[in-house]
Write a protein that binds this DNA or RNA. Structure first.
Ligand SMILES: [Zn+2]
Ligand SMILES: [Zn+2]
Ligand SMILES: [Zn+2]
Ligand SMILES: [Zn+2]
Lengths: 126, 126
DNA sequence: GAGAAAACGAAAACGATTGTCAAAACTGGC
DNA sequence: GCCAGTTTTGACAATCGTTTTCGTTTTCTC
């Protein structure tokens, strides 16, 4: 529908890493778009609600978003320096999480798993 | 050292779940303490910097803290409803994270892994 | 006890996010 | 094309967790 939502989705697609709402807003404005910050937040909210984009929290609590290719459950390997992210899978981790939950009588198990590191490019460059 | 830091640590010890700075501040004030919010934040900062307490982010970006028993690397199984947390270990997950990082040429690998669910008490009660 | 250093806490500042509300863009009849 | 009704938008204000600032108090050291 909304062309604005499309605009934001596209901006996200152009990045390989996770971006914050403010990042995207800055990008779009510098490209000449007249979009408002509120709208960027709304678009990201809608996109993540509908499961079209992934969201996670940085250490300092900022929400960052990414338009992932894989549409099944997956996790991320994220470069601590440049933010580049790789989608990864870990069936064994899925099983472990479920098992550990069941073991302690917990139900309705979910989990968050993210791997951080320094990517090859950043390791050599800096 | 600081008796204030001790006060905060103790308040944390009294809870089995993760608590936010504001939670702890409210608790302490209601117990009659004249501690200031700033000091609670500073104490939590210091305690987590020195690795004495664990910290993680809730979905809405709030930082929550816990004084864990285990002092080696571990993860948490957290009740989504009451916040109760259990310390869990997953050597296989540690290995998986390292392997996945190495596989993609990343170095200096770390990871965050948390499992969420509804604890038995909350499942029956509600 | 005097003076220096560390810890405190109230209030202001901050930064990300959300709420408000009027203007702008769209819609389906006419 | 034009109008009333709906949806979307964006400037601005408000919120909320957290950090800074800065004078005051407490603790240390001699
Ligand atoms: Zn990198
Ligand atoms: Zn998973
Ligand atoms: Zn822990
Ligand atoms: Zn529970």
């Amino acid at each position: 529908m909304s062309t604005r939502r499309e605009t934001v989705r596209q901006a996200l697609n152009e990045s390989t890493g996770f971006r914050s709402a403010q990042d995207l807003y800055a990008d779009l404005r510098s490209e000449g778009s007249k979009i408002g910050l509120t709208t960027v937040y709304r678009a990201l909210q809608a996109l993540s609600d509908s499961g079209e984009i992934d969201v996670l929290r940085t250490d300092d609590g900022e929400a960052v978003y990414r338009a992932c290719i894989t549409d099944t459950h997956h996790h991320h390997l994220v470069c601590r320096t440049c933010g580049k992210a790789v989608e990864v899978e870990g069936p064994q981790v899925e099983r472990w999480a479920d098992a550990v939950g069941a073991q302690h009588g917990f139900t309705d198990i979910t989990h968050t798993v993210e791997v951080f590191g320094t990517c090859a490019a950043c390791a050599s460059g800096e």
